[in-house]
């Protein structure tokens, strides 16, 4: 190509780059600068305080409390979602065993249903489940009472011991369908004769799942793990809608801390510092997850 490529490059690259730099890159960069100040947002005046915000953060029990909740999410959300997703995907794609290895009947309908929460905004999911958990008029307590398990009826989001798990359940509910479809697509690329051979050898479904499906789908599972870990760290929109971190900080997560400290208390410097810590945590968790789950790739065919 001659010198003619520059007009095209300029027209094609400069507008998106300018927009991206102005609204995305510059705010992210500014956050790091603001995190070293005591800025309160009312005026342009602020003092550079160096690492004071980070020292304060180290001793802030609310930050540790929120981090602990993120840790729980980080442990529970990927494991539970991936296990349920793998199980359901196995049933749908290689579950039918009457002679041949096929999916069960109606598998595309099941997929349609499971995937549907992916269509809903976090606001719809949050509002819907807040009502489901409503102790007086909610679906869940009514269901428990209907089958005679009155004792299990809870105030769910109002109980500090239960609220966080109730939110985890909603996150699992919303995400499983995506991974059923994702794992299902990956299973389709596994040659059928591998499953047939396993069935002939009399392998149980359990063995088939952990000795065949999991190793063959490892790449996809790894991606799922990283993605769910990021969701677990970033799980703040749902919390914001359902509980705002309460009752008594029992569902507080690090994103909610950033938001509350910044926009609630106008401590923009301190809030940004929490955000910076959150960024480095997410980054290192992603890297660690990628390292830990690294395995030799199994070549099909």
């Amino acid at each position: 190509m001659k010198h003619g490529k520059w007009p095209l490059l300029a027209t094609f690259l400069l507008p998106p780059l300018a927009l991206y730099a102005y609204f995305v890159l510059s705010p992210y960069a500014q956050t790091f600068v603001i995190s070293t100040t005591d800025w309160h947002g009312l005026s342009r005046n602020y003092n550079v305080v160096g690492l004071d915000n980070f020292k304060k953060l180290w001793n802030d029990e609310h930050v540790w409390n929120a981090l602990l909740h993120n840790l729980w999410l980080l442990l529970l959300l990927p494991v539970v979602t991936i296990l349920i997703g793998l199980f359901l995907a196995t049933m749908l794609n290689v579950g039918g065993r009457s002679g041949r290895i096929t999916g069960v009947r109606g598998s595309s309908f099941y997929k349609l249903v499971y995937f549907s929460p992916q269509m809903l905004s976090v606001a719809v999911i949050g509002v819907l489940w807040t009502e489901v958990y409503n102790p007086r008029s909610g679906l869940l307590n009514a269901a428990l009472r209907a089958i005679g398990l009155d004792g299990l009826a809870q105030i769910w989001l109002g109980d500090p011991d239960v609220a966080l798990w109730a939110i985890v359940a909603v996150m699992v509910w919303a995400n499983v369908g995506f991974y059923v479809v994702l794992f299902g697509a990956a299973m389709q690329s596994v040659p059928k004769d591998i499953y047939e051979a396993a069935a002939l050898d009399g392998a149980s479904r359990f063995a088939t799942m952990f000795k065949i499906t999991v190793p063959l789908l490892w790449d996809t599972i790894q991606v799922a793990w990283v993605y769910l870990a990021i969701i677990a760290m970033d799980s703040f929109a749902l919390v914001q809608i359902m509980t705002r971190g309460g009752p008594s900080f029992s569902t507080d997560v690090i994103g909610e801390r950033v938001y509350d400290v910044s926009f609630g208390d106008s401590q923009f410097g301190y809030g940004s510092a929490i955000g910076v810590v959150m960024f480095f945590l997410t980054l290192s968790i992603t890297v660690v997850a990628l390292q830990l789950t690294r395995r030799e790739r199994i070549e099909l065919s």
Partner: peptide, 25 residues
Amino acid sequence: IVYFAFVGGMMFPVVLAFVPLFFVV
């Protein structure tokens, strides 16, 4: 460089940009 500047944006949680974004806008 440009490619990774774009793609790197996927790594950041949006919450991190909130405060400056509000003032930029």
